[in-house]
């Protein structure tokens, strides 16, 4: 920990962080019910994709559920009706998200702040009504009975087995973990690239970035499309896990929830949104017995977090860690 290297996920050296993430991913299904673990991972990817836009592009989208939802529906349709391989079904869902991202971007990318949020909200409502009314989406019921299929026709994702005393569809879990970690790796990689630096400069001072010749709108558009694609991938993954593309995936409440996840975990940090997403899904599950009171409890937690951890849980932790490191550095001289 002594060497001042490039900060990784939590501020510590990068490689160590990724090993930690993988270890946590392997442990997770032994700590919570495996299907819940997979759902937590899907939402972690969704929140991180959203954070790419809010935390690093400075754009608050209030329509990200549209990408999540379209990913779930298209993947579900591809797996169920076209009977495609799970990987191809995931690819179809992601591609749909990318195309929707391009459409959203074409309309909204030059809008700033609250206007961007309003335009994305309006577009997402259009997508919601299409998913409600279109003949192949199952209306209120959503798309049910989506088969998990067999990966590359070989690895059955449906069958469960017992591993170290825990019964789960381990093949599916492996796929979900691999896709989620890869998605996060892609995000980290993009942010650390020349494009990432250019994007940060646009977020810091857009007119200045433009005055240096950086394609500010183009960069933001690119991030929106990437974010939309990853959010759709997360939705597609969730559809495979639960065998269901639910209409709730595309509601504005879902767009709100991903904002919540990101803020609770820490906007603009790599690990924060994933942690926030995992925590919220876990609470949803464990507090399910409270019925509609869940919303009240979660609202209370959100208010508490905003008041106490202004930077989010991981954001506060990072700030504390940097302060203590600075203190150690100065007292060591």
């Amino acid at each position: 920990m002594s060497a001042a290297r490039a900060p990784g996920l939590l501020g510590s050296p990068a490689l160590l962080s990724w090993i930690g993430v993988l270890a946590l991913g392997v442990l997770l299904p032994f700590l919570v019910y495996p299907v819940l673990a997979m759902e937590m991972l899907c939402f972690a990817l969704f929140a991180s994709a959203f954070n790419l836009l809010l935390g690093y592009g400075g754009l608050l989208s209030f329509g990200h559920a549209a990408f999540f939802g379209i990913g779930a529906y298209v993947c579900g349709h591809a797996a169920k009706v076209w009977q495609l391989d799970p990987l191809l079904a995931l690819a179809c869902g992601t591609a749909a998200g990318v195309m929707l991202g391009v459409a959203f971007g074409a309309v909204a990318i030059r809008r700033q702040g609250i206007y961007f949020a309003m335009v994305t909200l309006a577009l997402a409502q259009i997508v919601y009504f299409v998913l409600l009314q279109a003949p192949f989406t199952g209306g209120e019921d959503g798309l049910q009975g989506i088969p998990r299929g067999a990966l590359l026709g070989v690895l059955d994702l449906q069958s469960e087995s017992v591993l170290l005393g825990q019964r789960a569809a381990w093949g599916l879990y492996g796929l979900v973990l691999a896709v989620t970690v890869s998605g996060h790796f892609l995000i980290a990689r993009v942010l650390a690239s020349p494009t990432g630096l250019a994007l940060r400069s646009v977020q810091e001072h857009e007119p200045r970035a433009r005055s240096l010749g950086l394609p500010a709108s183009g960069l933001k558009f690119g991030m929106l499309v990437l974010s939309a694609g990853l959010a759709a991938l997360a939705g597609a993954l969730k559809a495979l896990v639960l065998g269901l593309a639910a209409l709730t995936d595309a509601t504005w409440q879902m767009s709100g929830e991903v904002v919540l996840m990101t803020l609770i975990g820490g906007v603009g940090t790599l690990a924060g949104p994933a942690v926030g997403a995992g925590l919220l899904r876990y609470l949803h599950h464990t507090l399910a017995g409270l019925g509609s009171w869940v919303t009240v409890v979660l609202g209370g937690i959100f208010v508490f977090c905003v008041l106490v951890f202004r930077r989010g849980m991981i954001g506060e932790w990072l700030a504390w860690w940097q302060r203590s490191r600075a203190a150690v550095g100065s007292s060591g001289r």
Partner: peptide, 19 residues
């Protein structure tokens, strides 16, 4: 970042920071 803006590297999101 100003020097970067002169090049096509702006869009090479697959490259590492060491670029």
């Amino acid at each position: 970042v100003a020097l970067l803006a002169r090049t096509g590297l702006v869009w090479q999101f697959w490259r590492a920071r060491s670029t």
